[in-house]
Simulated assay, not measured.
Amino acid sequence: MTYVVGENCIKCKHTDCVEVCPVNCFYEGPNTLVIHPEECIDCGLCVPECPVDAIFAEGDLPEAQAAFLELNAELAQEWPNISKRKDPLPDAKQWNGVPDKLQYLAR
């Protein structure tokens, strides 16, 4: 099992989670993060650090966000690794909880 960054990270991109990851399995895109499923050790340390509740255990991923399991795996192959905290996107607070954000995913 792995952890998965879900839809609510899009346009928010808080990076508190990357600071606590012992294996640096987060990868950074233009407006979201993803977790490399083959590098994740299932420790769960990242989950409570996410201020927008965008990280799920694979088994707890909401059915409506099932596509994010594959998206995380795909995009982790393309995007650079991130291991240090950065500021969230400037309008992150306005995007927290907005539904249907997959259409805004920037690759």
Rank of each mutant, 00 (worst) to 15 (best):
C50W: 10
A57N: 12
T32D: 06
L45H: 01
F68G: 09
E49D: 02
C12P: 00
K11P: 11
A67D: 09
L69S: 14
S83C: 15
N81F: 07
L75S: 15
P51H: 04
K11H: 15
E78P: 05
D87S: 14
N24A: 07
G29H: 05
G29T: 05
A66S: 14
I10M: 00
V20C: 07
E63T: 02
E38S: 15
E58H: 10
N81L: 13
F56S: 04
A64T: 10
L105C: 01
A64C: 06
T15Q: 08
E74P: 02
A92R: 02
I10V: 07
C25N: 09
R85V: 09
N96E: 13
A54H: 02
D53K: 13
V5T: 09
E28K: 15
L102G: 00
C40F: 07
V5Y: 04
E78M: 12
I55M: 04
K84Y: 09
P51R: 06
V34W: 07
P62L: 04
V47F: 05
A57R: 14
G59K: 02
P22Y: 03
Y3P: 08
Q77A: 08
P80V: 14
C21M: 04
P62D: 03
D87H: 10
F26N: 03
C9W: 09
T2P: 05
P51C: 10
T15M: 04
I35G: 04
E70W: 06
N81D: 07
E38G: 15
N72K: 05
C12E: 02
C9K: 10
P90D: 01
V23F: 00
L105Q: 03
L33T: 12
V47W: 03
L75N: 13
E58I: 10
E74M: 14
T32C: 06
F56N: 00
F68C: 06
V4L: 03
A54F: 04
T15A: 01
P90S: 03
F68V: 10
P22T: 07
E78A: 14
N81G: 11
L71W: 09
G6I: 05
V34M: 08
Y104V: 08
V47I: 13
K84I: 06
P51G: 12
G59P: 01
N8C: 07
E39T: 08
G44V: 06
L69M: 12
V18P: 03
A66E: 14
A76I: 04
A67E: 12
E70G: 04
N24Y: 01
C46P: 00
I55A: 02
L75A: 15
L71I: 13
C40L: 05
P48W: 04
M1Q: 11
N8S: 12
N24T: 02
K13Q: 08
Y27N: 01
A54T: 05
G59L: 04
P88A: 15
N72E: 08
L33Q: 13
R85N: 10
E58S: 09
A92K: 01
N81C: 13
F56C: 03
E38H: 14
K101F: 05
N24W: 01
E28N: 15
G29V: 05
D16F: 11
C50E: 12
K93E: 15
Y3H: 15
P88Q: 14
P22V: 11
L102T: 00
F26K: 02
E63A: 00
A64V: 11
E63F: 00
